[in-house]
Write a protein that binds this DNA or RNA. Structure first.
Lengths: 262, 262
DNA sequence: GAGTGGTCTAGACCACTGT
DNA sequence: CAGTGGTCTAGACCACTCC
């Protein structure tokens, strides 16, 4: 015999898949479902919880439960790296016009709110290994939050680590008030003679931590994409390690790989 | 005043983060927690559910709740595409020795169990758009399941779509009993004169559907990585579209992008 | 205030695991 | 069998939204 909450969930799921309940539609109230299925409040809520975990519905306190609509996606492509590198060599006025995020989203500079905070830190064992420097090497940590002007929550959380010694030749690079820097990190690095040669990006997925869910305003039933980006310069040194957390339900990452011809 | 289940979750979470509860450790029994916090069974379970959704703990019916250990990861890199293309031109005996999955996982051919099923289908509107063919174009659908010999559940679900007209010149390509094909799809395509030129991969993350959780044996509190791989040949045609579902907690995707020098 | 979902209780019984 | 987590009830009250 199937469990009661599963039968309820199955029936509602079928209604959604069949289109009897359309995206945006409100589900019957919990009290109505209690009536309809002859089960307790707790059991009905368990069924809704299953659907919520599948990302099929969204609950809104005081309003109701709704069939979820797909969120508009932000695409992030690895073609941006070449674009960023090219941009780093352009004139100041040209560079001021647009940033990498605008490139990805198609939005104007004025639609986005940008926040940066710099701090000094030392390489942990794990970071030291990735960056190929001794443990304890002084690093510059830069924390970024970017959000749409119209929304409260940022749409990504980014932390970048630079080797302090490599960048302190230009004091402006240690000054967070210079952000947002026209031309981005790769222009910053070019001022101290560093040219990026290749980028490695490692992608995994997991449910958000409590803190991430809070900060990114993620509803239950969503995942985050975790991206670690490692930038190598032309001498093979690791010059930047960035950890980026992106909402899984609104981010699409696009990677293009070109192959050698036969 | 904080909610009771949140206070319980916070306390247990702190214990885990502080290392008082190590990965693999069993948490106190629910009845013990009911005692300790002076709350009802339901409330304690709500707290554990929060931790489970964060992927911090794993519940095992009849045994207890345990602090989760990180799962061993499978890395999937885009360098494999060049590797696969190179391999497609090697001798039959050379190609038989190893497959792309073994390349990724470092395992031998004998550690893996491979299953393939072919069927005929027609391009849906969505697929037709991606493949740049008319809606209804005959396609060959190929469904793959790959798993470790020692485990029940496959570690990915893959579906590939080929334009039937492009491949039917070689009847062997329509025969699922020829799988696993030494040298993989790109060798198969080379037998009908197709050379792959570039690969686009789109990555998103979301919670598993009920069916995926079932088939991949995913515990609650995990996400899936969804990969759509589109292969273009040297004439710019889309020759393969593959949809792959990967467990987020054991898959790391690595993409390397090379840049032009200044 | 009416209607919605959210939290909580005290208790019962079921299902699974290990001895 | 004892001990674990899983399901379920009937009811109370709280918190939020909207009119």
């Amino acid at each position: 015999m199937a469990k009661a909450y599963e039968r309820i969930a199955d029936e509602l799921r079928a209604d959604i898949r069949a289109g009897q309940l359309q995206p945006g539609d409100r589900l019957p109230a919990e009290t109505a479902l209690v009536e309809r299925f002859g089960r307790s409040h707790v059991t009905v809520r368990e069924a809704l919880r299953v659907l919520q975990a599948e990302g099929l519905i969204e609950k809104q306190h005081g309003r109701g439960s709704f069939v979820r609509r797909p969120r508009t996606r932000v695409q992030r492509t690895n073609l941006r790296h070449q674009w960023e590198k090219d941009r780093a060599k352009e004139s100041q006025s040209q560079r001021e016009k647009t940033g990498a995020t605008e490139h990805d989203t198609g939005l104007g500079v004025n639609d986005l709110v940008f926040h940066a905070a710099y701090s000094d830190t030392k390489a942990t064992k794990e970071l030291a290994e990735v960056m190929n420097v001794p443990e304890g090497t002084p690093l510059l940590r830069r924390v970024y939050r970017t959000r749409y002007q119209a929304e409260r929550a940022p749409f990504n959380l980014a932390t970048s680590y630079l080797v302090r010694e490599l960048v302190e030749g230009n004091p402006d690079l240690l000054d967070e008030t210079k952000e947002p820097w026209p031309g981005g990190t790769w222009n910053q690095l070019s001022t101290v003679g560093i040219e990026i040669d290749r980028v490695e990006e490692r992608v995994t997925a997991r449910p958000p931590t409590a803190e991430e869910a809070e900060e990114l305003d993620l509803p239950p039933g969503t995942s985050v994409l975790v991206l670690r980006k490692i930038s190598y310069d032309t001498e093979g040194r690791v010059v930047d390690v960035s950890d980026v957390t992106l909402p899984g339900d609104r981010t699409e990452m696009l990677f293009t790989t070109y192959l050698e011809r036969w």
